[in-house]
Design a protein around this nucleic acid. Sequence first.
DNA 1: CGTTTGCATTACGTGAACGTCATCTACGTG
DNA 2: CACGTAGATGACGTTCACGTAATGCAAACG
Lengths: 133, 133
Amino acid sequence: MTEDLMTIREMCETYEVTPRTLRFYEAKELLFPIREGQKRLFTKRDRARLKLILRGKRFGFSLEEIRQLLDLYHVGDQQKTQMIRTIEIARERLADMEARREELTQAIDDLKEQLRWGEKVIASINHEKKAAG
Amino acid sequence: MTEDLMTIREMCETYEVTPRTLRFYEAKELLFPIREGQKRLFTKRDRARLKLILRGKRFGFSLEEIRQLLDLYHVGDQQKTQMIRTIEIARERLADMEARREELTQAIDDLKEQLRWGEKVIASINHEKKAAG
DNA sequence: CGTTTGCATTACGTGAACGTCATCTACGTG
DNA sequence: CACGTAGATGACGTTCACGTAATGCAAACG
């Protein structure tokens, strides 16, 4: 079994990132691998966070924005007041993401319409040829 | 009436970008303002493209990716074969965007669940206090 | 007519997110 | 014990997407 701990190399292969990237994320306080002597060992928590980081990146968030978002996912080991604040932020983020999805839907619809238009043009070109031929 | 042409300053105010940005986009062949002497004049087409550029940026596309996407939106003044190719690419992009929306939905659901969890924890803290008080 | 205003070009600077290279250390293996 | 392998630590390099002067021109204004 994987003893819940992964080396940097294993991490890289699993998530298709470079060692440099993982060290960089640690420097930026996005990941907190434990140390066995010198070597980094990544925990289950690090892996969960890395997944969220990569997902965040795919949506164009900066690492700093992602760092803030990550805190929303380990709500629990906090003081109550801090937690309430975290939850407020989470609600805002959630609203952002839903707005974002709206916009994405709009973009999809726009592109679909362009596609239908293009297909129609091509069809008419084909008919022209047939009529002329 | 706006004679369909806008100065760089008008563009900046309308879309909240800097002159530098617009010149940069022109250099990168994302926009093609016409010239009146030295001065740039932005057409309706430029404005449509700029809107798409800004939208693309919000979704984390690079300017180069956006440049390619832009071609999908003026399908029409092309040769048939080129147009067919463009449409193929558009279909792929469309699939990407729909997958992206799926992932975004997933992210939203995840965050919602975290939120419910956090709210539950807070509620239980409140009950503790009541019981203890 | 001098000056401000608006825009232009040229060019160097910057922050984010890593890549790359040199050097060092610790560990297992023949 | 020499040696390859895996990982660590600087430190400098790079790409992207602009920011920020410095300088120049041309019309408009007082």
